[in-house]
Simulated assay, not measured.
Amino acid sequence: MSRAVIVQAKRTPIGKKNGILQTFQPHELVAPLLRQLASGIEAKVDDVIVGNVTGPGGNIGRLSVLEAGLPLSIPGLTIDRQCSAGLEAIRIACCLIQAGAGQCYIAGGVESTSTSPYLKRARFSPDSLGDPDMVEAAEFVATKYGITKDQQDDYALLSYRRSWESFERGFFKEEILPVAQWYQDEGLHKKRNMEALVKRAKPILSGENNTVTAANSCGIQDGAAAAVVMEENSALRLGLKPILRFVDSQVAAVHPHYPGSAPIPAIKTLLERNRLTIQDIDLIEINEAFASKIVACAQELSIPYEKLNVSGGALTIGHPYGASGAILVTRLFYEVQRQKEAKYVLAAIGSGGGIGVAVLFETVR
């Protein structure tokens, strides 16, 4: 069986909605990444797979290929699995290589909420089941798993501290390909009395027992991320160094009222099939759409915070929907190069409709 490896990964800075990236259409955010990642291997790329959620329609993957000036022979594909789209794009590329359908793909995701033509989100669930907005769904998860506001606030503060420390240590410079003059995540800045700001934040929804606040939730953002996924022997013949090797993946679904819990069954099934436990996984990235989701996943899967989102995440830098899953993989790509002892790593994300995607990698030494 052919083995898929990741040899390069990059992301743009992440901008707030109507912020630093507000004038960039989705294909204009992806194109610089494609140019950078394809440099020197343009003729080897079989396809580009791009995840997107709120874009203008059409085939953003193909449009991005053309905008980047890549060979006209590269087709381009766009997929939508809501917030899981970027991770799903990378998963599909890995599976295509494993099946022998191709040798080299660039896969990832993009979101431009600033230029989206849609004023409202897509429907996640039929009326017969109910179609809660994401904040309401985050409250459902908190209630179901008994997650308190203090637990969510404490995790949000941990994420903020980790993100800021990672920025100060220069970790994000490795990940980011600047766009125009922008080279830093817009939402990341030093805040005084952060603990007081988080603890005093009021629930977004009215109601006596609500716990989800703006301080323990992600922001709405613009951004893109992508990775070069290659067949391992092909990469080695080209003199490229594999960093992550695809092991396996799993998609799972839960009731659409609890999308934040969808990574739980996906991760459980993935580990069981590969005869692994959480103790065997050295680094885990789960998208931080809401702190309630992360606390619930950590609680139900017995994940110690010491190996979970160790460089911070979306609660601080933001959640550009279609790109977020690819940002998780980009983060792992660089983190394993700093933590030389890491062997198995995992990326997972939950999305609207109650879908969870989990992807397991091993490091290549």
Rank of each mutant, 00 (worst) to 15 (best):
M1D: 03
A9N: 02
K17L: 14
G19Y: 07
Q22P: 00
E28L: 11
L29F: 14
V30T: 12
V30Q: 01
L33A: 02
L34Q: 03
I41T: 07
N52G: 10
T54N: 11
S64G: 04
S64N: 00
L66N: 07
G69D: 09
C83H: 02
A89Q: 00
A101Q: 12
G108H: 00
E111P: 06
P117E: 07
P117N: 09
K120S: 11
A142Q: 00
Q151L: 13
R161S: 13
W164R: 14
F167E: 15
G170R: 05
Q184L: 11
R192H: 06
R192C: 00
R192A: 15
N193Y: 14
V198L: 02
R200H: 13
S206K: 15
N209R: 14
N210F: 08
T211Y: 03
V212M: 11
A214M: 01
Q221G: 04
A226H: 09
L244T: 11
S249V: 08
P256E: 02
G260Y: 03
A266I: 06
L276H: 03
I278W: 00
N287Q: 03
E288R: 04
V310C: 10
G313K: 06
L315S: 12
P320Q: 01
G325F: 07
V329I: 15
Q337T: 07
A342K: 11
V345Q: 01
L346R: 02
A347Y: 04
G350H: 02
G352W: 02
G352I: 03
G354S: 04
V359W: 03
R365M: 05
